[in-house]
């Protein structure tokens, strides 16, 4: 009887430890912006409703955002972006599924600044490409702010840009991610 109790206590203890040390950090209000610079024109847009989460155990990092939710300063640019280039009614989302490589080096219980390589697959317009960058993770009172930037070429994601406007759109668009994650479970 004593032995059974001991085994049960050990299993429960291990389960409790696993839950405590691991967990999911999440937000539905992450920010993604992009910036295209050419001598002809600068174009930028922001999205403040990015759904994103990561696991402190596996380092898996995911996000999903709606293309139509990118807001431009100029309404006409926003219209052209959605209707002509991104076809956002047909391809409504951009998603990322990847990994924070050095997740084990980040102490989520201690305030501090950490950095890690992030690798994964970015899907836009049903085209998936590998993406690699370095993310900065700032832990403050249990909130994790993650920042990362990388560049992408719109032509790699089947974005068709008419020749007439091509000089206005960069082939290296800077993507900036900035999200505050809180512990969920």
């Amino acid at each position: 009887m004593k032995r059974k109790t001991l085994i049960l206590t050990t299993i429960l203890g291990l389960f409790a430890f696993t839950n405590h040390s691991g967990g999911i950090y999440k937000t539905n209000t992450g920010n993604i912006s992009f910036y295209s610079h050419t001598p002809v024109e600068d174009i930028s847009a922001e999205n403040h409703k990015v759904k994103t989460a990561f696991s402190t155990e596996s380092g898996q990092l995911q996000f999903s955002c709606l293309i139509k939710d990118f807001e431009f300063k100029k309404a006409l640019m926003q219209e052209h972006f959605n209707e002509n280039y991104m076809e956002s009614t047909t391809y409504p989302k951009a998603t990322f599924n990847g990994k924070i490589e050095s997740i084990s080096s980040i102490d989520f219980s201690k305030d501090g600044t950490y950095s890690s390589k992030v690798n994964g697959k970015l899907t836009i317009k049903n085209v998936t490409q590998d993406v690699a960058t370095t993310g900065t993770f700032v832990v403050t009172n249990g909130v994790v702010n993650a920042k990362a930037t990388f560049n992408l070429n719109p032509y790699d994601y089947n974005v068709k840009i008419p020749k007439m406007v091509a000089p206005k759109i960069s082939e290296s668009i800077k993507i900036t991610i900035n999200s505050d994650y809180t512990h969920r479970h």
Binding site: S55, S64, L66, D69
Partner: peptide
């Protein structure tokens, strides 16, 4: 639109 993806289980 609708945000979220069945394949992204963490979300």
């Amino acid at each position: 639109g609708m945000n979220g993806d069945d394949e992204l289980t963490l979300l």
